[in-house]
Nucleic acid binder design. Structure first.
Ligand code: FES
Ligand code: FES
Lengths: 137, 137
DNA sequence: TCAAATTACTATATGGTGGTAGTATATTAA
DNA sequence: TTAATATACTACCACCATATAGTAATTTGA
């Protein structure tokens, strides 16, 4: 299972921000530190701003800052904002509806795993990504 | 979590074949029954043949047939043949190496779920997809 | 034999994600 | 006031998965 690259970038950025002591992060700084393509990161940050996760401070000494407490931002919300969560909620074989009463041949075994995945993504918040063990961003 | 459309098709086809009493399946029959695009299915079948899951019988009354016992075909092998399993084995945040000693910030919570997913895909065989409960192909 | 039924091959079109380029706009330290 | 430092916007390009089209090759029943 892999997220879209855009989701990966978004989570890496927010994860990096919550693990840092700094308050304001310029695009340039994030680009250099996280090795995310310049213009791609800028567009993504605008997108995250519009979705209310962060807000931008324009002009000299400007940058990005959390728009709300990171413990109110769930991973699933971030994924939903940049690529949509549908991809993870539907049937693994591509049939739209996934339910016990209308199962595909993989449903019985896969459904419990999916439940855990969805639960994990929708209950974990960005602030829970703060850790001293994490070595990479 | 969703497989690539090609993997979906492949699994739906093999799942359909194991759940049917027939032995030989023409491309035309599969196309009409499973609503998979004509030429796309044909190319996929050739691909599955080359990977040894099925074999083709050419000419009049030809079609496709399992090339080996379906209980020796694991789901992960099918996925690996048509889209590759790397996508599911790596770090959820896109860092190549995923291990407890070099974790990303999601690793601690995600790794156990990934283990289950990989285990499920690599131990389940096509013949286990035979079921009277399944309503859709 | 040969026509019908079938798979195999090659080339091309399309759509979406990821990535790039250039310009416009806003803010502020000096 | 103004130059420097930021973000915002618009258009475009590249690649890959998905899908389509046309033709060639193979087998077999009649
Ligand atoms: S119906 Fe396919 S995974 Fe639930
Ligand atoms: S290192 Fe990211 S999921 Fe394991």
């Amino acid at each position: 299972m892999r997220l879209s690259k855009t989701s990966e970038y978004a989570l890496r950025i927010l994860s990096f921000m919550i693990n840092s002591d700094m308050q304001v992060f310029s695009a340039k700084y994030l680009i250099d530190t996280l090795n995310v393509p310049d213009k791609y990161l800028r567009r993504l940050m605008t997108d995250l701003s519009k979705n209310g996760f962060i807000k931008s401070l324009k002009g000299r000494d400007g940058g990005y800052i959390f728009a709300k407490n990171a413990n109110t931002i769930h991973i699933s919300q971030v994924i939903d904002a940049v690529e949509g969560m549908d991809r993870y909620e539907g049937c693994i074989m591509g049939f739209g509806d996934c339910s016990d009463s209308n199962p595909c041949s993989l449903h019985e075994n896969y459904a419990p795993i999916k439940e855990q995945l969805i639960h994990f993504l929708s209950t974990t918040t960005i602030s829970e990504l703060k850790s001293t063990n994490v070595l990479k961003f």
